[in-house]
């Protein structure tokens, strides 16, 4: 373990899809040094990509004047990726997850991001904007297995 525990880092990006590669590189750079396996690292990167793509395309409607903040918090037993936005609050835990057999039968082609997040992460928490904190925060958690 070379990365100090309780270490944190931040990224501020415009809410545009061309920034997804920057977001993935930021997450991968930190997670890959934190003792997670390659598969776990890939899954954390994927979950953050999906969360940010949803924010950019659906919450912000591809408005390039909006932005997203990411904060990575490494703890002894887990890693948290905190994703902050100022859109209308939407708790992904309230989303109806698709039944995949029905999804395939109906030939749908959107709406898989939250399902992917739930399948690869150990925890998803959502704190909507409120008094004293003007932005929404989604917290994705992955437990350390090693």
């Amino acid at each position: 373990m070379t990365v100090p525990l309780n270490d944190t880092d931040f990224l501020h990006v415009a809410a545009t899809t061309d920034q997804l590669s920057t977001i993935r590189a930021f997450v991968r750079a930190h997670v890959s040094q934190a003792g997670f396996s390659e598969l776990e690292t890939n899954n954390i990167v994927l979950a953050v990509d999906e969360a940010c793509a949803n924010l950019i395309q659906h919450a912000y409607g591809n408005d390039p004047t909006k932005s997203i903040d990411l904060r990575i918090v490494m703890r002894p037993t887990e890693i948290n990726v905190e994703i902050t936005d100022t859109s209308t609050p939407f708790d992904p835990k309230n989303a109806v997850l698709p039944d995949m057999r029905r999804y395939f039968a109906e030939h749908r082609h959107h709406g898989l991001g939250i399902l992917l997040m739930t399948r690869v992460m150990d925890g998803i928490e959502y704190v909507p904007a409120g008094e004293g904190h003007p932005a929404n925060t989604l917290i994705l958690t992955k437990l350390r297995t090693a």
Binding site: R24, E50, A53, G113, L116
Partner: peptide, 14 residues
């Protein structure tokens, strides 16, 4: 790399 947006492309046409 592929995300769900990539998977969705195949669903559009299949």
């Amino acid at each position: 790399y592929i995300s769900s947006a990539g998977l969705g492309v195949f669903m559009v046409f299949i």
